[in-house]
Nucleic acid binder design. Sequence first.
DNA 1: AGAAAAGTGGTAAACGTTTTCCTAAAAATT
DNA 2: AATTTTTAGGAAAACGTTTACCACTTTTCT
Lengths: 331, 331
Amino acid sequence: MSKIHDVAKRANVSIATVSRVLNSSDHKVSAKTAEKVRQAVKELDYRPNALARALQINKSMTVGVIIPDIANHYYAEIVRGIQKEADKEGYNIILQNTDRNPKRIVRSINLLREKVVDGIIFSGGIISGYEPLSVLQEFRDRVVVIGRHDVNFPAIMVDNISGASQAVQHLIDLGHTKIGFIGWAINSTTATDRLSGYKSALAQNRCRFDKTLVREGKLTPESGYAEAKKLLSGKEVPTAIFAGNDQMAFGVIHAAMEFGLKVPDDLAVVGFDDIPLSSFFVPPLTTVEIPKFSLGTSSMRALMNLISGKNTSRIKLHKTKLIIRKSSQIN
Amino acid sequence: MSKIHDVAKRANVSIATVSRVLNSSDHKVSAKTAEKVRQAVKELDYRPNALARALQINKSMTVGVIIPDIANHYYAEIVRGIQKEADKEGYNIILQNTDRNPKRIVRSINLLREKVVDGIIFSGGIISGYEPLSVLQEFRDRVVVIGRHDVNFPAIMVDNISGASQAVQHLIDLGHTKIGFIGWAINSTTATDRLSGYKSALAQNRCRFDKTLVREGKLTPESGYAEAKKLLSGKEVPTAIFAGNDQMAFGVIHAAMEFGLKVPDDLAVVGFDDIPLSSFFVPPLTTVEIPKFSLGTSSMRALMNLISGKNTSRIKLHKTKLIIRKSSQIN
DNA sequence: AGAAAAGTGGTAAACGTTTTCCTAAAAATT
DNA sequence: AATTTTTAGGAAAACGTTTACCACTTTTCT
């Protein structure tokens, strides 16, 4: 691994000159010397040591990305978006999986601090307590958060309220009045927003809100299955169920089959997220698509703006899109 | 952000002493001074600058991970495994998504070279041409490859042959003799290995190999659907189909429904991979589970061995596991 | 008691860059 | 032709660590 010194020696110039050529500094160097240097660089296949560079200029061209679970398609897509955008400007990303474990979140942040990242994108889901956040504070103006606005950082948000509202409106348009909703943990803003959207669509159409039609589960097919069974064996049986995410929706469909109900004829089902298999489920699932990739690019762009001192808008809201498939609509 | 100098000043010692306390070096420092230092560190919330450290000791505690697509569950799980293992020893990972684009692979490697990573885990899928590999050569003894052994690096492999063979054996045990196979690109070792496993199981049971029952598609539900339709409308209609991966298997089930065939009664279907939704598909899919997470931990462990000079076995083969669900077995 | 060894601390030289000064030559101005 | 300005290059000081080397005490050994 050759160093700038080697290049300098080979080109018969000082290391300062080499550096200047490579960084196209405003300190001029003659075309001839520049060429000599470039030649030497090529011959030695020289690559500057980014560590030394980062140490000197106090900029590592690296950002940290903190997420709960990379195996979750939602976060994976976000990371993909971040990558794509980071790539454009030569940034690299250091990934941190936290499994939603507060201790690991703190650890991650501290690690990133040591590694001297230029900024952090945080998409941690629920943060219980405030320790992680206070640690984040040290990064102040170099943090972007995805999915929460209850915190003093620029935030990239999903319009869950209108997304859910759209979905329910769709069911109402199809003639449904008894629409079930399966949500999850009420300490998640995402969950409460989707519930709000559900309620608001009902209200706007003067449908009665029946709280026995609302259940709280977990974000898994198993849970969707279990909660759907409860709804379907309740007193008021819904003709449509809006599940808090696609995984739950799959569970709902499963339960429907067990009850001998055909989807969508006897029970319409709508999910949320549009995970990859939704389109190929049997029946294909009507769902609300989240622009995950855009959340990624958008957050990275916001972070880069922050880093370079440009100010970004406090909150950027991303719209969702209703994708109508067979699980809600008869033929 | 306080530096080692600040700590030294506060504790009334030299920076050398601070460093020695923090790195528990073999150069001793008295318990009393050590305590002074630790106190100062705590008071200032000092964190050593990993960049400066890396530059000095020539070890960045960072490894590069090159994969085609983080949004693919297979790779996401691998990354999760890598993370988990890396975390144990304080390593961080820099992620590189290549979209299987050779140019980006080269770019990624060079970038990692600049960032002075301690090693690289490469799981690139098919590499067309050799440029990327030759660039990798520079890392010589600090590279681990996942999923290919045709290259001179330590490799973490999946036993696709026996995995496929197990799956087909299972179908044979159920009484099937006309078993279709949908594979994909023959320039992928994974694809050819699964085909080999298919053939070998047939041979072991003295079943005739009928090449009209073998088709080549792509790794998507759409393709599985299309190829299954061809198989089901062929001259020899299979009573079971072994799809090269789960996504294709979903397509196969879809096609079966369109042909009015019940799964598994009229057509047994087996996939490969065990992606998250396979268990909750309707019907739940019999499939061959790949220990993706283990591939990750295993590769990271191998890499860390390599880095620390221990030698690793050239190839580590991971066994798969047949998971029997409803899509193959009539209760 | 004297010498050797062990314990404890500091100074300064690395690690590989970028960048601030300087300086010398060349070009432009008077 | 003398002066100023511009251009082009080098020397050396940073960036924040680790560690080799040195020096002074204290302990241990003969």
